[in-house]
Design a protein around this nucleic acid. Structure first.
Length: 473
DNA sequence: ATGTTC
């Protein structure tokens, strides 16, 4: 039987309204009706569009039915508050206007209770990167971000530092063999408990993502993600790791939840935008009420993506620990791009979105990376209410990716990296050290938010991209 | 950020 793909036009003819239902139906046919005849598909689509209520729990047609029903029931646009709630900005003089504008809009949402802008802030989608937003009983998918549960992880080892200087090539080989960037994945992915979670079989969108999750586990992705060897220096005799003051060979990684988190983010953002219509300038800040099924689903899926991101880091560090032939002395990990249930000063529950911001509650440990040629910092939160217990998640960009490619020269960047004594695999001009703010200046803006326990100096770095670019001549 | 447009 001939089977061609049905187009959006075909679906409109069958009575599908403009909007997300068409996309969901095309996806459902791709996933569940491949090989079925055109007549069969059309008959099924007609039944769903005429009576979506019957198909809400259907494995294949549930998302289509949901999109059809939402389309017809929720259409009123909600108004923003006339006046924004006041909020703290850390290091306003170093933050681009676009990021501040986005934060001002977020502070006018009817669900917003508190907000703060971190010193590494820059413009993003919806909430700026470096934005912290506390809401009441609502979660904003784009307040969390696309790379759900993206995080930092560091392990420290009892290995003489001379090893770093004498065995650069060996460390490079370890990174080449034990990390995967871009589209690359491991031929034999390691199993992990997170892949066995029942949730993968309970939520439709997760069913379709389980395979991707299995394939990509332990990989790093692209963009600003990295895995690097470097030297950690512990400054204080009193530290959470019970380590003597001194220097330690360390592994530092930055990456997130890969395709799993990206698809969860995309799916629930669309759902939120259908359910919560907002004025144009605020549309990407659409939220899901936590009392709704969609809100509960997102919350569970977000937490799963966070656990998956953690599992990826642990596999990266497990592989490198095995390559080094040592067990780590200590492990530090913290995530950003996430929403947490916390309490405000009055004891009320708030939903705290940290989109590119580090949790910094009292005594909470975290890592704030600089760039590949400047130090990162092991920090301990002070629990400052004005920042909603948060700090920056890095130095922040000063050059956009496009600007970086236009203005920087490969030769100059390579020279700068070589001069810093850093060995680089991969990367590109858009991730050159020059695209980031001076980390020392950023740290100076947040002394009220965190204490510094130690520093990390990158030595052998791997990022996504053209391997020949990173090679030092 | 992402098998980078339903």
């Amino acid at each position: 039987m001939a089977t061609r793909k049905l187009s959006g036009k075909d679906l409109r003819k069958l009575g599908f309204p403009e909007g997300r239902a068409i996309g969901e139906a095309i996806k459902a046919m791709d996933e569940h009706y491949k090989g079925k005849s055109i007549l069969h598909k059309k008959a099924m689509l007609k039944k769903v569009v005429e009576n979506p209520g019957l198909y809400l729990k259907h494995e294949a047609w549930g998302p289509v039915a949901m999109a059809l029903i939402i389309k017809t029931e929720h259409n009123e646009t909600l108004a923003l508050r006339e006046k924004r709630i006041p909020y703290h900005i850390y290091g306003a003089d170093g933050i681009e206007q676009g990021a501040i504008n986005q934060m001002e809009i977020a502070m006018k949402l009817p669900v917003t209770k508190y907000g703060a802008l971190m010193p590494d802030a820059h413009q993003g989608y919806g909430l700026p990167i470096g934005g912290v937003l506390a809401t009441e009983n609502a979660v904003i998918p784009y307040g969390v971000g696309v790379d759900i549960g993206c995080r930092m992880c560091m392990t420290m080892y009892d290995i003489p530092l001379a090893f770093v200087h004498q065995n650069t090539d060996e460390l490079k080989d370890m990174l080449m063999e034990n990390t995967k960037f871009g589209q690359a994945v491991f031929k034999r992915p390691k199993d992990h408990e997170v892949l066995d979670r029942g949730l993968f079989n309970e939520i439709n969108i997760l069913k379709s993502l389980k395979d991707t999750a299995w394939k990509q586990i332990g990989s790093s992705g692209g963009g600003n993600h990295f895995v690097e060897f470097g030297i950690t220096e512990i400054h204080s005799e009193i530290n959470e790791f019970n380590l003597p003051v001194g220097k330690y060979l360390s592994v530092l990684s930055h990456s997130g939840s890969r395709g799993l988190g990206a698809n969860i983010a995309r799916h629930y953002t669309k759902l939120a935008m259908d359910m919560t219509k907002l004025p144009g300038e605020a549309k990407h800040l659409a939220w899901l009420d936590l009392d709704t099924e969609a809100g509960q689903e997102y919350w569970q899926a977000m937490n799963l993506a966070g656990d998956y991101a953690s599992a990826c880091h642990h596999q990266i560090h497990d592989r490198l620990a095995a390559a080094l032939g040592e067990q780590p002395l200590a492990l530090i990990e913290n995530h950003h791009n996430f929403a947490w249930k916390e309490r405000d000063a009055d004891g009320n529950e708030i939903i705290v979105h940290r989109k590119g911001a580090t949790p910094a509650g009292e005594g909470v440990l975290g890592i704030i990376p600089g760039s590949m040629t400047s130090p990162g910092f092991i920090v301990k939160g002070k629990g400052n209410v004005d920042s909603i217990n948060s700090a920056s998640h890095g130095a922040g960009r000063v050059l956009s990716r496009t600007k970086a490619k236009q203005t920087l020269s490969k030769k100059e960047v390579k020279k700068h990296i070589k001069k810093a004594g850093v060995t680089l695999i991969g990367s590109g001009l858009d991730e050159a050290p020059q695209v980031y703010k001076n980390i020392h200046e950023v740290m100076a803006k947040q002394t009220d938010l965190i204490d510094v326990l130690g520093t990390f100096e990158p030595k052998v770095v791997r990022m996504c991209g053209d391997e020949r670019f990173g090679e030092v001549d």
